[in-house]
Computed example of a mutant assay.
Amino acid sequence: MKEKVIFVGASGFVGTRLIETANAEFDIKNLDKQGSHFYPDITVNGDVREQSSLDSHFLGQQTVVLLAAEHRDDVSPTSLYYDVNVQGTRNVLAAMDKNGVKNIIFTSSVAVYGLNKKNPDENHPIDPFNHYGKSKWQAEEVLRAWHSEEPEERSLTIIRPTVIFGERNRGNVYNLLKQIASGKFAMVGAGNNYKSMAYVGNIVEFIKYKLHNVEKGYQVYNYVDKPDLNMNQLVSEVEKSLSKKIPSVHLPYAVGMLGGFCFDILSKVTGKKYSISSVRVKKFCATTQFDASKVHACGFVAPYTLSQGLDRTLQYEFVSAKKDNITFVSE
C-alpha cells in the first residue's frame, strides 16, 4: 500500500513538478482552489482560508505537504499574505488535528532572513523586509507552536527555499533569463552580487526525499543549489547554453532605482503590473546568498547541478519546440 499524502496548493509551478516526481511512489491527493492542468483526476477543490473546505479531505491522510501561499511582490490588499499564509496554516493544522494527521512538510522561504545578509544558515536572526517574509515567519511560528504541543508524536519539516526557477515558470528568474537571452539586457550595478538559486527539479526531489524519511521531531532546512553564481557568471551561463554572445551594458544603481520608481508610479496610474519595479531592482542588486550546508549533509543528493538546471530551463524555454503553452506565474 502506498502512503497517503495530501498536497495543499499543488496546482502551481512547484506542486505540479512535485506530483510528477512523487506520483508513482505515493497515493497523492491535491487540494487547491485552482484546478490542475496536468493532474485533474487527483485534484479536489479547497481554499485554505475556508475551514469547511478542508476538513473532510484530510481523512485517512498520513502526511501533509503545505505549498499554498500568497507570494508575489505586488499582492493587494496586503492582508491577503496573512489570510493565506498565516491563517491558512492554522486552518490546515486544525483539519489535520480533526483527522489525526501528525506529519507536515511546510515550504517557507529564505525571505524570513531579509536582504543583504551574510550567508545566513538556519539559526540566523530573522529580519523579513516585506509582508511575504513576515507572513511566512508568522506561519512558521504557528507550526512550531503546534509541534510543541505533542513533540514526541508530531513531525514538522520546514523548508526555506531560495528563489526557484525551471521549465514553465514565469517569475523573476524567467524574466531575467529572457532579457539576457534577448540581448536587450542592462546590468544594474557591477554584477558582482551573488544570487542563491534553486532548480525546481532539485527542490521537488528534496521534498520527496523528506516524504520517504518522515521522522518525529522538528527540522528546518535552507534549500539552495550550490555553488552560487554572481550576476556576471549567470550571464556567462546563458551565453554558454545558448551559444551566443550577450551585449554587456552596465547602469549605475541610482539610475536603475530611478527607473524602478518610475514604473511604480506608472503602475499606480494605469493599474497595470510591470516586470520592473523599485522592489525588483532592489532585489536584483542585492546579494542573496544562503548557507545550505545542512540540506546537503543530510543524505540528500540533488540530481542536477545548478548549471544543468539553467541549461535545461534555457533549452526548454528558448530553443526547443513546445507541445503546449501552459505556464505558471510566480516570483
Rank of each mutant, 00 (worst) to 15 (best):
E239D: 13
E122H: 10
L310D: 03
E70C: 09
R170V: 03
A190P: 06
V86G: 03
Q34I: 07
R72E: 05
G46R: 00
H250M: 11
V5I: 12
Y199V: 05
W146F: 04
H124N: 09
K195C: 05
E149F: 14
T288V: 02
M197A: 07
K118H: 15
A22H: 04
V295C: 12
N30I: 07
I164M: 00
E25F: 14
P227C: 10
D74Y: 11
G9D: 09
I42E: 05
D41E: 15
N175P: 01
F185M: 04
T16D: 07
K102F: 08
Q34G: 06
D83A: 11
G309P: 02
L211F: 01
A297H: 06
G171K: 01
P227D: 12
G12D: 05
E331I: 09
E50Y: 08
I28F: 06
E25I: 09
Q138G: 02
M257K: 15
G133I: 03
D264F: 06
I6P: 02
A198L: 11
A198Q: 05
L266D: 09
N85F: 04
G259M: 10
S76P: 02
P120Q: 10
F318T: 02
P40D: 08
S267M: 06
H147R: 08
F58W: 01
V249H: 12
P40Y: 13
G35V: 10
G114P: 01
P247K: 15
S248Y: 12
V204G: 01
N99F: 03
P40R: 14
P227V: 08
V112Q: 00
N202L: 05
L177E: 00
E153Y: 15
S52T: 08
R72C: 04
V188I: 12
M1Y: 08
L66E: 01
S277G: 05
L18V: 07
T157M: 04
V86P: 03
Q308K: 06
D228M: 12
V220F: 00
A286T: 13
G259R: 07
L229N: 11
S155C: 15
D311N: 15
E25P: 03
V301C: 09
D55G: 07
Y199R: 10
L143F: 01
Y253D: 10
D121G: 10
Y174I: 02
V188L: 12
A198D: 05
I276H: 02
D41N: 14
S79I: 10
E152Q: 15
K273I: 14
Y218S: 11
V48D: 01
F328A: 03
H212Q: 12
E50N: 09
L234V: 14
T89E: 08
R90L: 11
F165T: 00
P120S: 15
K136E: 02
G189T: 09
G166M: 06
A145W: 06
I203F: 06
E140V: 04
D311W: 01
R160P: 00
R144K: 14
E25Q: 10
L80E: 14
D47R: 14
T157P: 00
R90N: 13
V75S: 04
M1K: 11
V255M: 14
D27L: 15
D73S: 11
V279P: 04
T287H: 06
F165V: 00
F263A: 12
R168L: 02
V64G: 00
F300P: 00
K268F: 12
S275V: 09
G183W: 14
D41V: 09
G217Y: 07
F58M: 02
I19M: 09
E153T: 14
Y209T: 04
Q308E: 15
G299P: 08
G191I: 07
H37W: 10
K210W: 01
S36F: 05
